[in-house]
Simulated scan of single mutants.
Amino acid sequence: MKRFLLLSIVLTVLCSCNGDDGILEADPPRLLAEVAAENEAEIQEFLQTHFYNYEEFQTAASDFDFKVVIDTIAGDNASKIPLSQQVESEVVLISSTDFGLEEDEVDIPHTYYWLVANGGGGSAPTVADSTFVVFEGVAIDGNVFQSQIGSGIWLDLQGNGTAANPGVVAGLQEGIVNFKSGTDVTDFPDGTFEIDNFGSGLVIMPSGLAYFNGTQPGSSYEPIIFNINLLAVETADHDRDGVPSILEDRDNDTDLFNDDTDEDGIPDYIDFDDDGDGTFTEDEDVDGDGDPTNDDTDGDGIPDYLDPDNS
Rank of each mutant, 00 (worst) to 15 (best):
117 A>I: 10
91 V>N: 10
220 S>G: 07
122 G>M: 04
117 A>P: 13
228 I>C: 03
302 I>W: 05
170 A>T: 15
183 T>L: 10
33 A>Y: 04
39 N>H: 08
211 Y>G: 01
68 V>H: 09
63 D>L: 12
108 I>A: 00
175 G>Q: 09
255 D>F: 10
246 I>W: 06
283 D>Q: 13
117 A>T: 15
209 L>F: 04
247 L>Y: 14
210 A>S: 15
148 Q>H: 13
83 L>M: 13
222 E>G: 00
214 G>D: 13
241 D>F: 14
191 G>E: 09
264 D>I: 06
309 D>S: 07
297 T>R: 07
28 P>G: 04
182 G>K: 07
71 D>M: 13
98 D>Y: 11
19 G>D: 09
282 E>M: 13
121 G>K: 11
22 G>R: 08
164 A>K: 08
262 D>K: 01
202 L>D: 02
250 R>T: 15
225 I>V: 14
259 D>H: 13
186 T>C: 09
90 E>N: 03
178 N>G: 07
135 F>T: 11
112 Y>S: 15
279 T>R: 04
255 D>S: 14
73 I>V: 13
185 V>R: 14
4 F>Q: 12
248 E>V: 02
226 F>V: 14
153 I>D: 01
48 Q>E: 12
212 F>Y: 05
267 P>V: 07
229 N>V: 14
213 N>P: 00
212 F>L: 01
268 D>M: 10
58 Q>P: 04
67 K>P: 12
32 L>D: 03
89 S>Y: 11
308 P>F: 03
299 G>Y: 02
120 G>H: 06
283 D>N: 15
139 A>D: 02
79 S>M: 13
62 S>A: 15
303 P>L: 10
204 I>H: 01
232 A>W: 06
60 A>K: 13
219 S>G: 11
249 D>N: 15
106 V>Q: 12
67 K>M: 03
123 S>M: 14
178 N>I: 06
131 T>G: 09
89 S>L: 11
143 N>R: 09
76 D>V: 12
41 A>L: 07
61 A>H: 05
263 E>P: 00
233 V>M: 00
215 T>F: 11
221 Y>P: 05
91 V>H: 00
311 S>F: 10
17 C>W: 02
167 G>P: 14
211 Y>M: 03
105 E>W: 03
125 P>H: 02
35 V>S: 02
41 A>V: 08
150 G>V: 07
173 Q>A: 12
141 D>Y: 01
106 V>M: 01
275 D>Q: 05
210 A>K: 06
111 T>W: 08
40 E>D: 05
101 L>E: 15
118 N>T: 01
76 D>C: 09
67 K>Q: 10
306 L>Y: 00
96 S>Y: 13
234 E>C: 05
49 T>A: 07
44 Q>K: 05
175 G>P: 07
276 G>M: 11
255 D>I: 14
121 G>S: 15
102 E>W: 01
226 F>H: 10
155 L>M: 11
51 F>L: 08
152 G>C: 08
48 Q>W: 09
188 F>R: 06
91 V>A: 04
188 F>G: 04
232 A>M: 14
249 D>S: 14
201 G>Y: 04
26 A>S: 10
36 A>Q: 09
